[in-house]
Each structure stands twice: as structure tokens, then as C-alpha cells.
Design a protein around this nucleic acid. Structure first.
Length: 423
RNA sequence: GGAGGGGUGGCCGAGUGGAUUAUGGCGGCGGUCUUGAAAACCGUUAGGCGCGCAAGUGUCUCGGGGGUUCGAAUCCCUCCCCCUCCGCCA
């Protein structure tokens, strides 16, 4: 959520940001609602001050008659205060809802552009391997090797579900452990977190109300299934004031991620690229505002190093203004090459959300020598999403004999170096 | 699932309708004293929103929300969390 203060004092800055995003949002309405809220507040506070003063006099009243007279005087005021309090509640709720429709202010370093075609390839690592045979897509490889079973998963759970078996399941588990160990070694505190959270927590991280359509929830109780570990990690410090010396706080967590994918019906239905349930390791940081730029670069490098060590051909994209996520001011995507499917797969998105998410979650910090509390900056980055990483490993590592050779770095951990075709 | 007890400032803890601008203690910070420190004593000790150039000033916050009342930490409703006991359970 952007601040009401920004809307009031620098609406032109927000307007420019919306133009850069090629997005429409009710900025003018927010400006108007913000002004209306203040008008109500001014009258209300004046009446409250009068009431408090009258209360003191009533308490000190020497005779019962005087007390009754003073009380009678207050009746009309009390009614007006009730009215104004109701108006204020409505006005604040309306303003909050309107502000909730406005995306984060685009970062200065984010390149301008209409849509994903304008994203900038910052760098590419490795080269597409030359095959002396026709490389297969991962869904064919997975089935042939007996390690991805879409059919049996669909039988029990429907489309966009999959299961891993044998070497596939073992490889995924090894990767998750290795990712977490890498982040731990780089100073990220490993966390095991709830994958089900309250509605309030979904609001704090900004999933609600805007992205309701993509979330699963329990039918009877107030539990929502997280679409990413970003949700619980954001909430880790919700409503707290942190010590400046404690920043940056860096966390990593592995969770299942649940997504309805309602808005992408029909897209990416083959394979395990877009599914309702998948595993992901997520990195997260809370930083002082002045440090979030460096933290973004560090987090991006951390995610990239995993792909480099895995020897996967990949590229780094800087997301342009028109393709930027709602919460983000600056984002980079990491895409790995899938030679069988002949497409780039997004395995990580690393974003600086500045104070946008921190304001919703109410995460602040206080510098030792300064008064007051300011919102922290939050950053999140996948490190990494498992199904697509797995798909790229299979497609890039496939051999003419149908086997898949695994990268050196993961062999000891997974316990084998080659996945052989099933008998 | 059943029965009961709780939630007050950084921490502990008093307060059960008005003089509370939340008693008191601990901790933190500043000061007096001291060669220095301790002790003692004195002072200070949050956040949000509004008005104001500022100094200030008003208002809200006693787990969250709503209500009763001229007035709520205090009474009522509701939700959340913690603790004890019983049942069930990996």
C-alpha cells in the first residue's frame, strides 16, 4: 500500500508511476477521500476535546444538580460524536480500499516499457547446448524415466497436479536441502513456517484483497493456503518496531505453494511449469530504506549463484515498468533455458518492494539515535522454484540414450549422478 | 471436543464507571555526587493520526473489533491469543 501522505503531498509522483506501469488506478478518488477524511477528523477531534473537558468537570462537580446540568449539556455532543465516528470509520475504510488499488511507485532504475516484451536481458550465462538429437520436453522425459507422473496425480487430484517418484522425488528433496544450506551459508536464517495463514496475514503481505482469485482457502475456518513463503515471512515481523542494529534481517524458507491459476486457464497445461501445488525455497529481507538497493543486488546474485553452480544456461531479465508486479518497485527475473520445450522458464523473481509491503504489514524500525519509527523496506526472491528448475535440469541434462546427467554439485547429496531410463 | 483461569507500557505488576495527563517497581537514557565506578538522589522513558513554519497543541491506543454511558482499562457482545485440567491424537 502506498501512503496516504504521498497521495496528498505528491499525487503527481503517483500519477507518473501509473503512467509508467500503463495502469489505471483510482488516484483522484484517493486524493478526494483523503481530504474528506481529514475534514471529518478535524471536527471530531474538536468535539472530543470538548467532551474530555466536560468529563473532567462532571467528575469534579460539587452538587448533584450541577452534575445533572452538565450531563444534559453533553447529550447533543455525544450524538454528534457518534455520527462523526461512524463517518470516519466509513471514510477510512473507503480510503484504505482505494489505496489498496494503487500499485507501488515504480523505482527510478526500472526501465520503461509496455509489457514483458520490453523486459531487458541484463546478462546471459552459458550457452544453449548443441544437441546431436532432438531434445525432449521434460514431460516426455519425466514419463519415460518414470520420475514425473502426471496421470496418477490427475486421477486423484485433477489437472495441474503432478507427482514425483523415485529419482525425481529424491532429486527435488536434494535440491531443496542444497538451496537452504546455500542460503544459510550466505547469512539467511532458515525458517520452517505455516503454510496456512489467517486472512489478516494475507492482507498484511498484500495477497488480499487484490489477488483473492489465485488463493485457496479452507471452507469452514479462517485458513488460507500460502501461494509463496513470502506471506509467512512478511508476517514474521508484522506490527513490530525493529532495532536499526538488527537490520538487515534475512530469512529463507521452503514451503509448498498453492495457486489456483484461474486467470491463466488453458496456459502452460503441459508438464509441470504451471501447477496448483509446488515447492519453492524463498529468500526474504527486511532492510533500512537506504540499504534495499544493495540488498536487491545481493539477493539476485544469491539466486543466480545457484543456477551457475548447477551449470544451467540461464538469463537475467530486468522487468520493465509495464510488466512490474503490483508490490514491486524494482524486479529481476531469472529464466532457465528448456531446450526440449524450447522456451525460457522463470525460476526466480527477485523484487524490492520498498516500503509498500512493510506499510501493509506495519513493520517499522527505529534508529538508536533518532526519534520516531520508519517503515523498513522488504525484498523477496525465489531461490528457487522447484518444478521449473527440475524441468530445466532434465531437459538440459538429457542424453541420446534417454538418461539424464546431473550437475556435479548435487550428485553427492542426491546419491547418484545419472537418472537412467526405467526398466 | 469439554471445563476453568488469564491478556495493562521494553519487562514485572496495581487499578473493577469520573481527581488516571494509566499507581509502584525493574530495566534503559541523562544528570548530581565521585579520581573513576558503585550506591544514593533527581530527571526522563511508546506509537498512530490531525492542526501548526516552528515551539507546540489536540485526539486515539490497556489483546483486536463492536456496543452501553454525558464519560470505559473498568460494564456488555464478539473474535484472537496464552495457561491449567479432562478427552482424543502423529
Amino acid at each position: 500500500m502506498i501512503s496516504a501522505q504521498l497521495v496528498r503531498e505528491h499525487p503527481e509522483e503517483v500519477r507518473r508511476s501509473l503512467e509508467r506501469r500503463r495502469a489505471d488506478a483510482p488516484l483522484d478518488l484517493a486524493v478526494e477521500q483523503e481530504r474528506g477524511r481529514r475534514e471529518i477528523l478535524a471536527e471530531l477531534e474538536e468535539l472530543r476535546a470538548g467532551r474530555n473537558e466536560a468529563g473532567r468537570r462532571i467528575g469534579r462537580a460539587e452538587s448533584d444538580e450541577e452534575r445533572q446540568r452538565l450531563i444534559a449539556e453533553q447529550r447533543a455532543t455525544a450524538e454528534r460524536i457518534d455520527e462523526l465516528e461512524a463517518s470516519l470509520r466509513d471514510a477510512e475504510a473507503a480510503l484504505d480500499a482505494t489505496l489498496g488499488e494503487i500499485p507501488n511507485v515504480v523505482g527510478a532504475e526500472t526501465p520503461d516499457g509496455d509489457d514483458e516484451d520490453a523486459n531487458v536481458v541484463v546478462r546471459t550465462h552459458g550457452e544453449a547446448r548443441a544437441f546431436d538429437f532432438e531434445p525432449s520436453p521434460h514431460w516426455e522425459l519425466g514419463e519415460r524415466l518414470g520420475i514425473i507422473d502426471v496421470e496418477r496425480a490427475a486421477a486423484m487430484s485433477g489437472s495441474r497436479m503432478y507427482m514425483l517418484r523415485g529419482a525425481g522425488a529424491r532429486l527435488q528433496r536434494a535440491l531443496i536441502g542444497w538451496f537452504l544450506d546455500s542460503h544459510h551459508a550466505s547469512g539467511y536464517e532458515e525458517c520452517y513456517v505455516p503454510a496456512m495463514v489467517r486472512e489478516e496475514a494475507m492482507r498484511a503481505s498484500g495477497q488480499l484483497p487484490k489477488f483473492r482469485d489465485n488463493l485457496y482457502r479452507d471452507d469452514e475456518e479462517d485458513y488460507w493456503f500460502v501461494p509463496t513463503a513470502e506471506v509467512p515471512l512478511t508476517n514474521l515481523h508484522a506490527d513490530q518496531i525493529l532495532d536499526a542494529e538488527a537490520l538487515p534481517l534475512r530469512y529463507a524458507a521452503h514451503t509448498p505453494c498453492f495457486r489456483r491459476e484461474k486467470t491463466s486457464a488453458g496456459r502452460d497445461v503441459r508438464g509441470i511449469k504451471r501447477v496448483h501445488q509446488f515447492e519453492k525455497v524463498e529468500m526474504y529481507q527486511f532492510t533500512a530504506p537506504e540499504d534495499s538497493g544493495d540488498a536487491l543486488a545481493e539477493m539476485l546474485a544469491q539466486a543466480e549463484s545457484l543456477l551457475q553452480q548447477l551449470g544451467l544456461h540461464h538469463r537475467v531479465l530486468q522487468i520493465c515498468s509495464g510488466d512490474l508486479g503490483f508490490n514491486a518497485a524494482v524486479s529481476y527475473d531469472l529464466e532457465v533455458w528448456a531446450p526440449g520445450a524450447r522456451e525460457w522458464l522463470e525460476v526466480s523473481s527477485v523484487s524490492n518492494c520498498t516500503d509498500f509491503q512493510a506499510r501493509r504489514a506495519n513493520v517499522r524500525y527505529r534508529a538508536a539515535d533518532k526519534r520516531g519509527a520508519r517503515f523498513v523496506h522488504t525484498l523477496n526472491g525465489s531461490g528457487l522454484a522447484l518444478p521449473r528448475t527440475l524441468a530445466a535440469l532434465l531437459e538440459q541434462g538429457q542424453q541420446s540414450d534417454g538418461s539424464v546427467v546431473l550437475p556435479e554439485v548435487i550428485r553427492e547429496r542426491v546419491g547418484f549422478g545419472v537418472i537412467e531410463p526405467a526398466g
